[in-house]
Each structure stands twice: as C-alpha cells, then as structure tokens.
Write a protein that binds this DNA or RNA. Structure first.
Lengths: 340, 340
DNA sequence: CTGAAAGCGCTTACAG
DNA sequence: CTGAAAGCGCTTACAG
C-alpha cells in the first residue's frame, strides 16, 4: 500500500511537470477557466495526461465543501436488500443523477436493528442521506429519528410523515391515486364484490393504495385480507380459504404484483375464467410478471424516476441550504392487461 | 453549508470536552485500547455521545491508508443497470461484506462509452474497483484496459481473461459445470435432439454454459440459435421459426431463464406437452420465474455469494498487497422443476 | 492571470 | 499511558 501511495501523482507533481504552481493545476482541474491562460492550461492538461494524475477526493473534501457523496440506506430484514425490483430501479435512478453531477453514491443495506451500531452513525462521509425503510411502524419511526438526528439532509422514500421543522424531504409515488384508478376501473366494469389482498406488514404505501381503491369504488371493498406476500403458496391458500367461506368475488386486487400473480394462477388452476368471471388487478409492474400469461392488468411504478427526483432534490438542497419542497409525489400509470 | 460545518464537532472539541488530547480521542475511536486508560476512555466516550461526534472520513483517509471505500462499476447500455436480478444480488452481497468490515460501497452504472469521461477515471476516491461489464467483446476489453490502467486492484465478475502480471482477480460462477449438469441431465433422460437458445450478444459466461452443455450431452447440441433475450415475443418467434423448419426438438435449453420462460410459454401455447414431448431447462434462477406454472427446471446462480467473495478478496488484497488467488469460481446448483 | 501561505480534521511518528 | 508536532493533498483567501 506504500507502493500505491508512492505511485500516485499529486497536484504538486503535475505543477512541477507543467512548470506552474499547484494553484493553477487546481484551477484547471476545477474548470475555473477565468483564472488560467490558455497556454498554462494546455501544459497542465498534458502533464495530467502524462502522469495519470487523478484528484484525491479525500483531500478535496477536507478543505472544500464536504463530501461529494450521498448515502443511500436500505433498511431491510433481508440481506438481499436489492431483490425488490422497485428498490433496484430507484437506486439506479439515484446513482445516475448523482454521477452525472460528479457526485457519488454510497450504498448500504441494514437490518432494522443494525442502524444504531452502523458505521453510518459513527462516521461522517456523505453530504446527505436517502433512505428506504421497511419493517414495523415503530422500528421505521426509530430509524427516521436517528437519521434526522444526524443533522444532515434526509430524503425518505415512500413514507408520509410530518416534515415541519425537519431537514427532510419525502419522495413517493401517488399510491392513493393509483388505488383510485383501480377502483374506478373496476367500478366502471360493474365489479361490486372486490377482494383486496394486502401484505401482512402494514405500510403507508399499501394503506394509501387501499384508501384510493375505496374512493374509486365508491365505498370500501367487500373485504381486505392480509397475506405473506413473499410466500406464493400462502397467498394462494389464503385466497382459497376466503373463497371457500364467501364464494367467488367479482374481482381480486393484489396490493402488489407478487400477490396478484399468485392469486391469478390460483384462480386459473381452479378453472375460474379470468377476467370473465373474476377480474384480477395488481400494482407496481415488474417486467418478469409482464411476460406471464395472461398479462396482468396493473399499475406502472415510476421507481426509476423517484430515484432521479430524489437525487435532484438532494443536490439542490446541498446547494441552496434547504429543500425547495418537502413532499414530492409522482403519478403511477394504469397498465391495461388481459386479466382485468 | 457553513451551518453544517460549524455544527459538526471535531476531534479537538471532543478532546477539550473530555479533558484529554486529540490523540487520546483518536485512540479511543480506533479502538487502540492498549494506549488508553479506562478512565480516559470512559470520559472520551461520554464526550463523543454528548457532542454527537462522528469521525470525518475524508480527514482520516487523507492521512491514513487511503480511502476505505470500494467502487462497483456496472457497465451497461441501459440506465436501469440494476434491473438484472443477478447483478442486484451480487451488489447486495458485496455491499454487506464491505459494510461489515466498516468499508463503504461506491456504486455507479455507466454506458460502455461513458467510462473514459467518467469521474471514476478523473478522481481517486476508492481503494479498489469491482466491475461487471456487458457489451461487445472489444468494448469490454477496452473497459478492462482502462480499469487496470488505473493502478488499483480490480475484481472482474463473470469474465475469463489473462490475469498474469495484472492486479486483477476474476470472480465467477461455474457456468461450464452448470451447462454440463444440464447436458448430463438431458442425456440421462434420453434427449437426443437439443436446441440451445442463446442471447444474441456473445459473452464468456454463455459460451461456457454452451461448452458445458455439449460436454454433458456427449456432443454438440442439435442446434444453437441466437435470440434477443430481452424481447419476449422475439424469442418465441425464433423458436417458432426453428420448429417450422426442423420440427420439435426433444429439449430446449435457454441460456438464461428469460429465454427458457419465453420458450416454455410458446410450447404450451402450441399445445406441446412439457416435459412429455419437449423438455425445457433454463439457467440462473430468478424468483419471479420460480413462481410461474409449470415450474422451470433450471440452475441456481450464487450471485449473492459472488458479491461476498469479491468483497472478501478485495479486502484481503488491500491488506496483503496482492490477491491470494486470481480466479475464484463458485458452483451453480441444479434446481429440478416440472419442465425438464 | 499566477503564486505563496494557511488550514481543513484527522493519524503517524516520536518524545516523555 | 498521554501529548505536541508534523504532514496527508488539496482549496480558500489573499497578495501581487
């Protein structure tokens, strides 16, 4: 590692090589063209090329305006914290916006109880934090409390909390509007008895979708049951049990595509005509499901755009000293398929 | 941002608050217990808690052994560079290993021609680089050349290249062995005419799978055709055209599950019995496909473990000055389903 | 337009 | 076991 250190050219090496001062090199590297003559500039650029000079971020950050990296924390029970397509898209959008602005993304996944002892809490190495938090409501609130206690700007995805007085911005999709769209669609088609299937874990996004559904239907759905949405067979058993007790509904709405797909296949296995006898609609389109037969009617999530907008909001916050808006909500698009 | 700076406690603040020198604070923070008395330690820890002190990574890295972050570069045509489940799992495994060791992951996605101008090339802010590169062979080679030219340790995923004399470690799964497993399985079941369906883009992993398949079958498959693996209908049309010209094969092997799923659904749509008349086998299990009916016979990729192993190899390289091994290859597991 | 000095917040190397 | 000094590689603030 001494080898690494010794091999690395510094700003002084470049200055010597180009026959200018270190300041001039710095000005060239930072594109402060007004301070550097064309000739000096050319010589510096040649020297940089020759020596393979790369500016050391640590040194720049120390003297300059702080770290040029944004942290993205995904709080998840599972170590496979990017397995969810929604999260993966969101992270990609965020990373791309930051990279384009010459910022960096520092990514980490943590279990709900791992935040307190994490390096994130003990070290200052990012200029701001974005967070996507799952888990029980109290655990989520605790995570948010800790993050906001850091005294750094925070962007929180897919939550609705009080932002008054906090250096906090909410970035989310219009789950309520999406739910309403589903409700209106089903109502228009004459569906009267609608079964809503929700993940067991309560979650603002899900609650908003359900509230929207009720608004669109013009009243609460016939029933709303909770299922283990990660367990394909459990979803199917729950649906089977409900049908055994109450008969076939006119429509099943899955609060996400995993649930809706499982429900769909259960109905098809029973020989139920979809959408003839029962309509099935999902939420948050995943490409893998789009390919299944029949194609699920669902809503397209702007996950990638959520990441982009979060990045932009954070960069402007860092520049301007405050979030311009503290609640950013993007629309979800209705995606007609063959099941609803 | 002055507000941020002013509000942040430094090591000196903690030292003053605890009535010790800055050195002692540093020793406590770094767990150099042999240099600090219990009493001093307790006072420092209380002061840290009271002031909400967090060590500034930039300052530490500047004087210390360099940046404590590893870069992960995903070179991809698409901005949605985490859309592939394989990649997402791999990144999660890598991030978790690094975080556990108090290292950080710096993530970026770039188009093949974007690397040259990227901040990555102009800035030194990570101690080593991991890379997952897609695209045409020449473009991939160029990316690798640039990365290795940085004078930093590089871990390359899913490639087989010469490592002699390079500060480079290959981390991959045993695609050849997986292919052989499929071939042996199909041969044992008596399949004689096997159609292999490959992505259009050539790619070492795919070639290895195909070579393994041939070895397992005891000879080349009946035919190998290239398809746009991201285009569901294109895959189906290609299969339809092949069958129109050559009749039904005994088995179809898709070089990945996307292809195999599309092929499977095409066969079922035609009323072909699977696996009675035609067997279908995939590669690289994705959870979304696992839920389809009938369940695809495929191979489980150790993507998450690849990320973990890469992280471990990199950390040891940074510690020890060289990669202990330059070629790490993990097995893939056969995952029996209902289609083959 | 160019440069010499000071300093960012830590850790290294050394003295007590 | 504890601390004063020097320095990591940049940028800021200022003088010419």
């Amino acid at each position: 590692m001494n080898a690494d250190r010794q091999g690395r050219a510094t700003i002084k090496d470049v200055a010597r090589e180009a026959g200018v001062s270190a300041m001039t090199v710095s000005n060239v590297v930072n594109n402060k063209t007004q301070f550097v003559g064309a000739a000096a500039r050319a010589r510096v650029e040649a020297a940089i090329e020759r020596l393979g000079y790369r500016r050391q971020a640590s040194a720049r950050n120390l003297r300059g305006a702080g770290p040029r990296s944004i942290g993205m924390v995904i709080v998840d029970e599972s170590p496979a914290f990017l397995a969810n397509f929604f999260t993966a898209q969101l992270v990609a959008g965020l990373a791309n916006v930051l990279n384009r602005a010459d910022w960096t993304l520092t990514l980490s996944g943590l279990p709900p109880d791992g935040l307190a002892a994490s390096a994130l809490m003990r070290t200052y190495d990012v200029g701001g934090l974005c967070a996507m938090v799952s888990g029980a409501p109290e655990a989520r609130r605790e995570v948010l409390r800790r993050l906001c206690g850091l005294g750094q700007p925070v962007v929180l995805f897919q939550e609705v909390v009080e932002t008054e007085g906090l250096d906090l911005c909410l970035v989310r999709q219009d789950d309520e509007g999406g739910g309403r769209r589903v409700g209106e669609h089903l109502a228009r088609l004459g569906a009267r008895s609608v079964l809503a299937m929700l993940p067991r874990q309560s979650w603002p996004a899900i609650e908003n979708r359900l509230a929207g559904l009720a608004a669109g239907l013009g009243g609460a759905p016939r029933a709303a049951i909770s299922v283990d949405h990660d367990d394909f067979s459990a979803v199917q058993e729950a649906l089977g049990a409900w049908i055994a007790a109450h008969g076939l509904p006119d429509a099943v709405w899955g609060a996400n595509d995993q649930i809706a797909s499982a429900a769909l296949l259960h109905l098809l296995d029973r020989g139920v005509a979809v959408p003839g006898r029962v309509r099935v609609v999902g939420f948050n389109d995943f490409p893998a499901h789009r390919h299944a037969r029949p194609r699920l009617t669902t809503l397209a999530s702007p996950a990638y755009e959520l990441g982009e907008r979060a990045g932009e909001a954070m960069l402007r916050r860092l520049e301007g000293g405050r979030f311009e808006t503290q609640d950013l909500c993007l629309p979800v698009a209705f995606l007609p398929g063959e099941t609803g």
